[in-house]
Protein backbone atom coordinates (compact mmCIF):
# COMPACT_ATOMS: atom_id res chain seq x y z
CA UNK A 1 0.00 0.00 0.00
CA UNK A 2 1.40 3.37 -0.95
CA UNK A 3 1.78 6.02 1.68
CA UNK A 4 -1.01 8.19 0.34
CA UNK A 5 -3.38 5.28 0.12
CA UNK A 6 -2.54 4.30 3.63
CA UNK A 7 -3.23 7.75 4.88
CA UNK A 8 -6.47 7.87 3.07
CA UNK A 9 -7.32 4.48 4.50
CA UNK A 10 -6.47 5.76 7.90
CA UNK A 11 -8.45 8.91 7.43
CA UNK A 12 -11.79 7.21 7.48
CA UNK A 13 -13.08 4.60 9.83
CA UNK A 14 -15.73 2.59 8.05
CA UNK A 15 -18.28 1.81 10.67
CA UNK A 16 -21.61 0.15 11.18
CA UNK A 17 -24.11 2.40 12.85
CA UNK A 18 -26.66 0.85 15.15
CA UNK A 19 -29.26 2.13 17.49
CA UNK A 20 -29.58 1.41 21.14
CA UNK A 21 -31.95 3.15 23.47
CA UNK A 22 -32.41 5.99 20.95
CA UNK A 23 -28.71 6.69 20.75
CA UNK A 24 -26.51 5.93 17.81
CA UNK A 25 -23.42 3.80 18.24
CA UNK A 26 -20.73 2.89 15.77
CA UNK A 27 -18.35 0.00 15.55
CA UNK A 28 -15.72 -0.68 12.87
CA UNK A 29 -16.93 -2.90 10.03
CA UNK A 30 -13.77 -4.95 10.28
CA UNK A 31 -15.18 -6.55 13.43
CA UNK A 32 -18.54 -7.34 11.95
CA UNK A 33 -19.12 -10.76 10.46
CA UNK A 34 -22.78 -10.47 9.63
CA UNK A 35 -26.03 -8.82 10.64
CA UNK A 36 -28.92 -11.13 11.31
CA UNK A 37 -32.54 -10.78 12.20
CA UNK A 38 -33.73 -12.06 15.52
CA UNK A 39 -33.42 -15.80 16.09
CA UNK A 40 -34.51 -18.24 18.77
CA UNK A 41 -32.12 -18.12 21.72
CA UNK A 42 -31.29 -20.90 24.15
CA UNK A 43 -30.67 -19.68 27.64
CA UNK A 44 -27.41 -20.73 29.26
CA UNK A 45 -27.55 -21.02 33.05
CA UNK A 46 -24.92 -19.52 35.30
CA UNK A 47 -23.62 -16.77 33.03
CA UNK A 48 -23.78 -12.98 33.49
CA UNK A 49 -27.28 -11.62 33.08
CA UNK A 50 -26.59 -9.71 29.88
CA UNK A 51 -25.48 -12.93 28.16
CA UNK A 52 -28.82 -14.02 26.83
CA UNK A 53 -27.65 -17.48 25.83
CA UNK A 54 -26.58 -19.12 22.61
CA UNK A 55 -28.13 -19.44 19.19
CA UNK A 56 -27.54 -21.39 16.03
CA UNK A 57 -25.66 -19.26 13.53
CA UNK A 58 -25.58 -21.48 10.46
CA UNK A 59 -24.37 -24.46 12.40
CA UNK A 60 -22.12 -22.61 14.81
CA UNK A 61 -23.25 -22.29 18.39
CA UNK A 62 -22.79 -18.60 19.09
CA UNK A 63 -23.18 -16.76 22.41
CA UNK A 64 -25.40 -13.73 22.35
CA UNK A 65 -25.18 -10.55 24.38
CA UNK A 66 -27.96 -8.12 25.07
CA UNK A 67 -26.12 -4.87 24.54
CA UNK A 68 -28.84 -2.85 26.20
CA UNK A 69 -28.49 -4.81 29.39
CA UNK A 70 -24.72 -4.78 29.07
CA UNK A 71 -24.85 -0.98 29.08
CA UNK A 72 -27.26 -0.87 31.93
CA UNK A 73 -30.45 -0.09 30.03
CA UNK A 74 -33.59 -2.10 30.29
CA UNK A 75 -33.61 -5.47 28.55
CA UNK A 76 -34.37 -5.73 24.85
CA UNK A 77 -37.78 -6.02 23.30
CA UNK A 78 -38.08 -7.65 19.95
CA UNK A 79 -39.40 -5.42 17.20
CA UNK A 80 -39.21 -5.67 13.43
CA UNK A 81 -36.01 -3.69 13.43
CA UNK A 82 -34.21 -5.69 16.14
CA UNK A 83 -30.97 -7.08 14.77
CA UNK A 84 -28.15 -9.32 15.87
CA UNK A 85 -24.72 -8.03 14.91
CA UNK A 86 -22.21 -10.88 14.68
CA UNK A 87 -18.94 -9.67 16.07
CA UNK A 88 -15.62 -11.34 15.44
CA UNK A 89 -12.75 -10.24 17.63
CA UNK A 90 -9.62 -12.30 18.09
CA UNK A 91 -10.92 -15.85 18.49
CA UNK A 92 -14.21 -14.81 19.90
CA UNK A 93 -17.46 -14.78 18.01
CA UNK A 94 -20.52 -13.33 19.67
CA UNK A 95 -23.82 -11.86 18.65
CA UNK A 96 -24.98 -8.46 19.92
CA UNK A 97 -28.66 -7.66 20.16
CA UNK A 98 -29.30 -4.06 19.10
CA UNK A 99 -32.47 -2.09 18.51
CA UNK A 100 -31.64 -1.47 14.87
CA UNK A 101 -28.69 -1.54 12.49
CA UNK A 102 -29.14 0.36 9.30
CA UNK A 103 -26.18 2.31 8.13
CA UNK A 104 -22.56 2.11 7.14
CA UNK A 105 -20.69 5.39 7.37
CA UNK A 106 -17.16 6.64 6.90
CA UNK A 107 -16.11 8.44 10.02
CA UNK A 108 -13.15 10.75 9.42
CA UNK A 109 -10.68 9.90 12.14
CA UNK A 110 -9.99 13.53 12.92
CA UNK A 111 -13.61 14.05 13.95
CA UNK A 112 -13.34 11.42 16.66
CA UNK A 113 -13.04 13.01 20.05
CA UNK A 114 -12.40 11.31 23.34
CA UNK A 115 -15.60 10.74 25.16
CA UNK A 116 -16.64 13.88 26.99
CA UNK A 117 -16.81 13.81 30.72
CA UNK A 118 -20.49 13.32 30.71
CA UNK A 119 -22.47 11.10 28.39
CA UNK A 120 -25.81 10.26 29.81
CA UNK A 121 -24.18 11.00 33.13
CA UNK A 122 -21.91 7.96 33.10
CA UNK A 123 -18.29 7.42 32.37
CA UNK A 124 -17.46 3.92 31.20
CA UNK A 125 -14.30 2.42 29.78
CA UNK A 126 -15.86 0.73 26.76
CA UNK A 127 -16.52 4.01 24.99
CA UNK A 128 -13.69 4.79 22.67
CA UNK A 129 -14.85 8.23 21.73
CA UNK A 130 -17.57 10.21 20.02
CA UNK A 131 -17.76 11.49 16.50
CA UNK A 132 -19.92 14.24 15.13
CA UNK A 133 -21.10 13.54 11.63
CA UNK A 134 -23.17 16.38 10.26
CA UNK A 135 -25.97 16.54 12.78
CA UNK A 136 -25.50 13.04 14.16
CA UNK A 137 -23.58 12.10 17.23
CA UNK A 138 -22.06 8.64 17.04
CA UNK A 139 -20.67 6.85 20.05
CA UNK A 140 -17.70 4.71 19.14
CA UNK A 141 -17.30 1.56 21.14
CA UNK A 142 -14.18 -0.23 22.23
CA UNK A 143 -15.45 -3.70 21.47
CA UNK A 144 -12.76 -5.58 23.34
CA UNK A 145 -13.76 -3.79 26.49
CA UNK A 146 -17.41 -4.45 25.81
CA UNK A 147 -16.69 -8.17 25.70
CA UNK A 148 -14.47 -8.08 28.72
CA UNK A 149 -16.28 -10.34 31.13
CA UNK A 150 -14.44 -9.30 34.25
CA UNK A 151 -15.50 -5.72 33.78
CA UNK A 152 -18.92 -6.72 32.87
CA UNK A 153 -19.98 -8.32 36.08
CA UNK A 154 -20.68 -4.87 37.42
CA UNK A 155 -21.42 -3.12 34.20
CA UNK A 156 -22.48 0.24 35.37
CA UNK A 157 -19.61 1.72 37.31
CA UNK A 158 -19.34 5.41 37.56
CA UNK A 159 -16.12 7.16 38.16
CA UNK A 160 -16.00 10.20 40.28
Amino acid sequence: MSKEAKEEYNDNLKSIVFQLNNEEYALPVSYVGAIETMMPITRVPGVPKYVKGVFNLRGVVTPIIDLRERFGFSSYEVTDSTRIIILQINDIEVGLIVDAAYDVVDIPRNTIEPSPEVIGSVQVDYIHGVAKLKDRLLILLDMEKVLNQVEVKEPYQTES
Binding site: V44, G46, V54, V61, D91, E93, V94, Q149
Partner: peptide, 10 residues
Protein backbone atom coordinates in the same frame (compact mmCIF):
# COMPACT_ATOMS: atom_id res chain seq x y z
CA UNK B 1 -19.96 -22.92 23.24
CA UNK B 2 -17.15 -20.93 21.65
CA UNK B 3 -14.34 -18.98 23.19
CA UNK B 4 -16.48 -16.37 24.83
CA UNK B 5 -18.37 -18.63 27.17
CA UNK B 6 -15.79 -20.82 28.82
CA UNK B 7 -16.29 -22.73 32.03
CA UNK B 8 -20.04 -22.68 32.24
CA UNK B 9 -20.97 -24.71 35.28
CA UNK B 10 -22.25 -28.22 34.54
Amino acid sequence: LGNYLTDVFA
